[in-house]
Design a protein around this nucleic acid. Structure first.
Lengths: 195, 195
DNA sequence: TGGCGATTAGTTGACGCTGACTAGTCATTC
DNA sequence: GAATGACTAGTCAGCGTCAACTAATCGCCA
C-alpha cells in the first residue's frame, strides 16, 4: 500500500526513470556506479523493494524473460504515480534536513563512562582512520574524470570528514590540556577495579 | 545470545553502570536528560532491549516490585560481562569511524533527476532550516550551565551543521553560476512534460 | 573432460524495530 | 461526583531487513 521508506527504493525509482530494468540488472548497475557508497544496498533487499514498489503502484511489471534454464527475470517500468512519488520524495530529502543519529554522536553522549586517558588513545586511532578516509574520498573525486555532479556526494562527505578531524583534534587538546582541567566529571567506569 | 546492535542498548548499559534501574525509570531518565537527541529512543523498544540484554547475560533482574495495582516493575543490574561489553562497544564506537548513509548523501547522489531550478529552490529551503537548527543547537550549548562534557555531542553536531551550511551555499553558487555552466548533465525527470 | 570457483538470479527464515494498543491511576475541572 | 485528560507501565502484531541459502550456468585450467 504505502510507499516504502527504504532509501534503496528511491534509488530504484531514480534508475527506472531512465529505462525499465529487472532487479538483477539494477543490482549490477548499482555496484558498477559505486552507488553503494551513498545508498545502503543489500542484494536481497532489492527484490523486496521491487515487490513493495509494485504493490504500492509505483512501478509495474513490463515483461518476463528467461535465458536458458536461468531463473526468470521480470523487467519493471515506472508508473506515473511512481514518477510523481520519486519527485516528491527526492524533493523532500533535498529540501528538509532530517534529524539523524550518527554513531559518533551516540558515542560522544556516553563518553563519560570511559577514563580520559583511554578516550585520548581511542580518539587518536579515530583520527588516523579519518585521515585514511579523507585521502580515499579525495582519490575518488580526483579519479573520476566525470562531471562534478557525479561526485557531489563525495565532496559533501569530504567536507564532513574534515570537520570531524578538526573536531576530534580539538577534543583531544581540550582533554589533555592541564590548564582547563577536563578531568572532573568522568563517571567511574569500573568501580570494582579501583578500590 | 549475541549482543544487541541497537544503540539504545548501549545507553541502557551506560546508565545501569551507575545504578540498577527498571525500564520505565530509564525511560523517564532518558527523556529528562534530553538523550533522545543523541540516541534514537522508542518507549516500546526499551522493553525489547532490556529483554535482549538479559538473554545475552549483560544485565540481570535484581528485584520485582509493585506499587498498588500498577504493573510490576523489574529492576535490572549490570553483570560483569555487561560491564566488559559496555567498555568494548563504546571503545569501538569512539575509536573506529563507521561508514554511514545520511539521507542527504543519498539525495545528493540522485539529485540529477531534479531540474536545476528546483534544486536551487529546495537547497534554499534547506539552508533556512539548517540556520534554525544552528541557532537551536547553539542555544542548547549556551543554555546548559553544566560542564562542557555534557554538551560535547551538541558541539559536534554544531560543527557538522555549519559545514553543511557552507557546503549548500557553495553548491547553490555552483549551480547558478552562468560561467561554470552546471546545467549539462541533468537527467530529464519528466520526459513527458517537455516534448 | 572434469572439476573448481565465480557469476547469475532469486527465495527464505529469523530477528529486531516501530507504532499502536491495553489498562489502571492520578489530578483537574465543571 | 463524574468526566476528562495526562501519566504510569508494559505488551504485541506486523513489517522490514539482513544474512544465508539454492541452484543453475559459465569460464578456466590442467
Amino acid at each position: 500500500m504505502s510507499r516504502p521508506t527504504n532509501p534503496l527504493a528511491l534509488a530504484v525509482l531514480s534508475y527506472l526513470v531512465q529505462r525499465p530494468m529487472h532487479p538483477y540488472e539494477l543490482s549490477t548497475t548499482l555496484r558498477d556506479h559505486d552507488d553503494a557508497r551513498s545508498i545502503k544496498f543489500n542484494h536481497g533487499s532489492l527484490y523486496m523493494v521491487f515487490k513493495q514498489l509494485d504493490k504500492a503502484g509505483l512501478i509495474r511489471p513490463l515483461a518476463v524473460t528467461r535465458e536458458g534454464a536461468r531463473p526468470e527475470r521480470t523487467t519493471y517500468e515506472l508508473t506515473d504515480i511512481g514518477r510523481a512519488e520519486l519527485h516528491d520524495w527526492l524533493a523532500e530529502l533535498v529540501g528538509e534536513p532530517v534529524f539523524e543519529y550518527p554513531r559518533f554522536v551516540t558515542a560522544l553522549s556516553l563518553i563519560g563512562v570511559l577514563p580520559p586517558d583511554e578516550v585520548v588513545e581511542l580518539l587518536t586511532d579515530r583520527l588516523a582512520a579519518l585521515g585514511r578516509s579523507e585521502t580515499e574520498i579525495q582519490g575518488l573525486i580526483d579519479g573520476s574524470g566525470t562531471h562534478p555532479l557525479f561526485t557531489i556526494e563525495e565532496e559533501y562527505r569530504l567536507a564532513q570528514v574534515r570537520t570531524e578531524i578538526a573536531f576530534v583534534e580539538g577534543l583531544i587538546q581540550r582533554i589533555t590540556d592541564p590548564e582547563r582541567g577536563w578531568a572532573a566529571p568522568w563517571v567511574a567506569f569500573h568501580q570494582g577495579d579501583n578500590p
